[in-house]
Amino acid sequence: MIEFKNVSKWYGQFQVLNDCTTSVSSGEVVVVCGPSGSGKSTLIKTANALEPFQKGEILIDGISVGAPDTNLPKLRSRIGMVFQHFELFPHLSVLRNLTLAQVKVLGRKEGEAKERAKALLERVGLSDHIDKFPGQLSGGQQQRVAIARALAMDPMAMLFDEPTSALDPEMVNEVLDVIVDLAKEGMTMMVVTHEMGFARKVADRVIFMDAGSIVEDCTKAEFFDQADQRSDRAKLFLSKILPH
């Protein structure tokens, strides 16, 4: 469903993505991990054209992201994205955060959008907060609202960019639980995360990146249980994070 073909990206002279090729099939959960600055976030942001790339091709459901005649707003509306820092709209209520794009982009009626928003807030356990503003919610609550906001567009795939990195440790699980549920329901997902326990639980595949390249692209079992067959870089990474 999401195909990366030889994607390369430079910031001036500095190459942030180096010939990245991989794909995510329908219903698959792919976890992207790797050290800081390895290009994980950049890679998933190229998938909905929030980051441009200079070489290669990305196809979403057969539509080329980089092609000049692609209707980007329409393409983006079909892919949900969740950010590290939530990025809820602080001047809008929780309800309006969820309905704005439904009405403006999908052309839904206000009533219909509101019903959808209510159902999704119920699902992430935040029905009581529908009329609050983002600033009145905890980090974990904000991130759950952000997930609901993305789901309100009925996306065919979800991208998560370090969804728990900015959270207090005690709030990580309430957000991961929501994502795990989504995975169980068969949502196609690409998740950049350092939560290896989460990766073990829900990932179908694990992509390991270093210095802009995809070093490992294998099943969860191969990545975690046959670590001796992995590259030295991945072994080093695993040896540093797994003992805890």
């Binding site: 942001k45 707003p73 509306s77 950010f83 990025e87 709209f89 906001r149 567009m153």
Partner: peptide, 8 residues
């Protein structure tokens, strides 16, 4: 980024 990601 969040606005664009929603398709605005």
């Amino acid at each position: 980024a969040a606005g664009y990601a929603l398709g605005l």
